[in-house]
Design a protein around this nucleic acid. Structure first.
Lengths: 233, 233
DNA sequence: CCTCATTTATCGTCGTACCAAACTAATCGC
DNA sequence: GCGATTAGTTTGGTACGACGATAAATGAGG
């Protein structure tokens, strides 16, 4: 990449982090200490720190020591997010991403319908009840809406799924969280969630998938007409 | 993030890139020119360049001017890859990622079965034929194997899908591309591909999905026993 | 007009210095 | 004795200047 010196140091610190030599959550050693440790100038050390920060291995606030971040699925999503948010400045980019989300959830509801356990169904039901209870409060409704979908991402136990969900929510938030809401619309959405839940309960993957797709496509159409009405599809 | 000065410059250059003021593929202005333009020291400029490089907006080789890179789905995957590759040092991480791939392709084959056009089917058939023709040449077989699956990612027309496929292939390559291969195994894999193709041709999404899952799970089991035999599931 | 040597521009790295903010410890007042 | 205040130290953020090495530009020579 850039400089050879800084690169090898970057790699070595990266290695130290994943190897656990640098404890997660602890601050990185001082720059002057690192320059002694690596026998390099501060320029190089700072360059390595900058790169590691951008890569997601460090979290640095303006005047504080960088905090060590062990990489996980969530940081991977965050790293991708830095680029992805620039792809979402038109309806095309947003729709492309939204399609990925739809694709993802289609499998999740199918799997939920065929393989969800008792506790999974209970968590889903609880989320649905929360959703219903929040119909009158649009802000809280949005939160419970997200939470309901999130349950789907937690059923498999794969830690990557919730991270992916977080990514979707964050990236799509510019449109979805700013959507004009109403009690009527909240109620419609709740009914859609209920339909999905019912289909899962009935162990009917096809119906669940159909209910989900209907729900998400209606949601997209609403967003499209709200934010991208002027753009030609 | 890190420094306030460098940060605003980073953001502004980023903006210039996505706005097209800095043409894609062209080299970035010289550091001295930028320090004059932004009224900052070289230290700051270089820090901004480092950050942008790590973020994927610049490609810089050791002694050359950084090349401007417009972000796309592919660079987003690449950014995530920097973190993801550290999650793949054990069977757990690899399996988690592999599951995501399986999830993705399950929908792709379903959609192919229900909605693939004539040309899509032809491309799939061509890829299948290539695959069959390469059974005797394991290296070429691997390439045609990847190509066959890739066709599935291109059917929807969503540009994010091929980028995601590239990510999967790259991240999983350490295991899959190094797999001990044989004509027998190639032939088995070809038959699996053929079964998927047949099911798609028959417009049977359930059969296509089942064939795909069987194929991918067998593949995983082979990888697991080869690379992670010692680890306890 | 093309080739090769020389000059120049530019990057990679280093060192030093200064400021301001954060941290630490000693001091002061209760 | 203990909490609050203050002075000193550490550390990150930024700037300037310098030097070697290499890529790109330039000019000499055929």
């Amino acid at each position: 990449m850039s400089g050879r010196s800084a690169d090898s140091i970057t790699l070595d610190i990266e290695r130290s982090i994943v190897a656990g030599e640098l404890e997660e959550g602890r601050p990185l050693p001082a720059e002057r200490a690192l320059m002694e440790q690596y026998g390099a100038s501060r320029t190089v050390i700072r360059e390595a720190i900058t790169a590691l920060t951008a890569k997601g291995f460090l979290k640095s606030r303006p005047r504080y020591r960088p905090i060590v971040c062990r990489p996980d699925a969530s940081s991977a999503m965050q790293a991708a997010g830095g680029v992805i948010k620039h792809l979402l400045d038109n309806s095309r980019g947003v729709h492309d991403l939204y399609q990925v989300r739809v694709l993802f959830e289609r499998v999740l509801v199918r799997d939920a319908a065929t393989g969800a356990g008792k506790d999974d169904l209970k968590r889903l039901k609880d989320a649905l009840d929360d959703n219903q209870a929040a119909i009158g409060d649009s802000e809280r409704f949005y939160a419970t809406d997200v939470a309901f979908h999130r349950v789907l991402y937690t059923i498999s136990g794969n830690p990557a799924y919730p991270a992916i969900h977080t990514g979707f929510v964050e990236w799509l938030a510019p449109q979805w969280s700013r959507m004009p809401r109403s009690e009527q619309r909240n109620h419609d959405n709740f009914l859609a969630h209920q339909a999905i839940y019912e289909a899962i309960l009935m162990r009917d993957p096809d119906a669940a998938e159909r209910a989900l797709v209907d729900h998400l496509e209606a949601s997209w159409e609403f967003v499209r007409s709200t934010f991208f009405a002027g753009e030609n599809e």
